[in-house]
């Protein structure tokens, strides 16, 4: 009989969070521990199915003995850690991160949590003055590293720019991009391994880009749509959703979600069909599904038109 390797049970580690002792498995992150305690911890660049990049810094917590705040999404628990999630330092930093983002990026489609956090932490994005005029198409993509026009401070810089709509499947509205790196991870090593997009440029001019800003049809993009699946702010959006929102016909409350299995191949990916007025308007997959971890391919994501070719639709 061959031996079956069974992983040893994980040790439990005791940490203190806001004065309460919490026991979590070794290797957990501080975010895991906070969530186990039911502490509402804001996150933007974190997603369960991606490697934490800890760039948005909205999930920071205070760890005693650490000079700076630490990102809870990636920091592993260590025995005896004493963590504060609601100190003045933490609240200030979370407020400012939300304020910085909301004053530079259109976060109106970033979901209800963001608005709730902004209210809870008292973020006031208007206090940097009036927003600067939006960029011309291609202007941010042409920015050179280490150079920028020196501002006189009369207007607050933003990333506002025209939408990139260069294919039938999805649009890229980088006015809404908070540079969370999720799409790059999903396009790259964490899911699709296509590497059609990467972060280009530097500093405030850093942006998600194909090589030399070529259009998506000229890039390596395979239209799996996994970047849309992970985008937290609506910067990446189904063309169908984009058109409906533009035309004012998008209706969240009027939609139903039907879970089904993709009909194309034998892998068995779960699909969530978002249906409005008896039309599929977008397709997602549950993050916690064993097969997909939320990721799909072009067929499951966009290959639904045949369902809608009904006799009554002509």
């Amino acid at each position: 009989m061959s031996a079956v390797f069974v992983e040893a049970p994980k040790r439990l580690v005791d940490v203190t969070i806001d004065g309460a002792t919490v026991r979590v498995p070794e290797g957990s992150t501080l975010l895991d521990a906070c969530r186990q305690q039911g502490i509402d911890t804001p996150t933007l660049c974190f997603l369960e199915n991606l490697t934490p990049v800890n760039v948005c810094r909205v999930c920071v917590v205070e760890v005693e003995g650490s000079r700076t705040l630490v990102p809870s999404c990636s920091r592993k628990v260590e025995p005896g850690m004493a963590v504060h999630t609601d100190s003045d330092r933490v609240r200030t930093s979370r407020r400012m991160v939300l304020e910085f983002l909301a004053s530079t990026v259109d976060v109106s489609l970033a979901g209800p949590d963001v608005g709730r956090w902004m209210a809870e932490y008292g973020a006031d994005p208007a206090r940097y003055g009036d927003p600067a005029p939006p960029h011309q198409a291609g202007q941010r993509d042409a920015a050179r590293p280490g150079e920028h026009p020196v501002p006189d401070g009369s207007a607050a810089a933003t990333v506002a720019q025209p939408v990139k709509y260069d294919n039938d499947s999805y649009v890229r509205d980088y006015s809404r991009c908070i540079l969370c790196y999720k799409c790059v991870e999903a396009c790259g090593p964490d899911a699709q391994n296509t590497f059609a997009i990467a972060v280009a440029g530097r500093g405030f001019d850093a942006r998600i880009s194909t090589e030399f800003d070529v259009t998506l049809p000229d890039s390596a993009c395979v239209y799996c749509g996994n970047c849309i699946g992970v985008c937290p702010t609506g910067a990446l959006m189904f063309a169908s959703e984009y058109r409906m929102r533009r035309d004012g016909t998008w209706d969240d409350d009027g939609q139903t979600v039907t879970t089904t299995v993709c009909p194309y191949c034998g892998v068995g990916c779960n699909l969530e069909l978002h249906v409005q007025d008896n039309q599929i308007v977008k397709v997602t997959s549950p993050l916690d599904h064993d097969v997909t971890s939320g990721h799909l391919c072009v067929k499951g994501r966009f290959g639904f038109e045949f369902v809608q070719r009904r006799a009554d639709a002509g």
């Binding site: 940097y128 006189d152 401070g153 540079l179």
Partner: peptide, 26 residues
């Protein structure tokens, strides 16, 4: 600092911009 920030994290990417704008006003 606005030029040399790598742009990865929000506090530095936006903070260096806001600092420069503020100083421009002063």
């Amino acid at each position: 600092f606005r030029d040399e920030s790598c742009g990865q994290c929000v506090p530095c990417r936006v903070g260096t911009v806001r600092q420069e704008e503020l100083l421009g006003r002063l």
